[in-house]
Amino acid sequence: MPHYGIAIDTTKCIGCHSCRVACQNQQGLKYDQSFNWIKEREQGRFPAFGKEFVPVQCNHCQDAPCQSVCPTGAIYTSPEGIVLVHRERCVGCKYCIEACPYKVRIVDHHEGIVVKCWLCHDLVAKGGEPACVTTCPTQVRIFGDLDDPNSRVSQFIAKHRAQPLRPDLNTRPRIYYKRS
């Protein structure tokens, strides 16, 4: 069984937000709902300065805080390592939103449940890739099997020593970053 993950190369990100729009289209989200965001970080001083765009989405943590605090057991990890929400079980207590250090979970007020990136599980199951990955004009994201040392994503992580966001939080995310 593969364990999926994504490597993100922030040095290539131009902050165009097409990943966000592709995700909204794919998941049928409204304009003000989102499963991924682009955070911006300014660095350096004039004249040597720059802005880094950091795409952020559910990190599909191996030790997911949202999963351990969910009282209804609505949050679970699929065999492929994707953290999923059981829509029939969620009561909307929002404890997972508080527990998530990355703050990537949102409330769907229509269904009354908490939703988030599910790594386009429907597309992935058919052998495809998540919409944010395929739509990116500068190919910032690389999707693949983290368990296969020969996969593009594993090679990228090894070559660039890509790290997850805030590894000190011990959530062991499956999204890795090459930072500028």
């Binding site: 009282p71 209804t72 057991g73 079980r89 969620c90 009561v91 909307g92 207590c93 009354g112 449940i113």
Partner: peptide
């Protein structure tokens, strides 16, 4: 939210 308008979901609250 969902637990309020579908109260039977509250039985799941003792799952974890």
């Amino acid at each position: 939210e969902a637990g309020l308008w579908q109260p039977w979901r509250q039985f799941y609250l003792v799952s974890n």
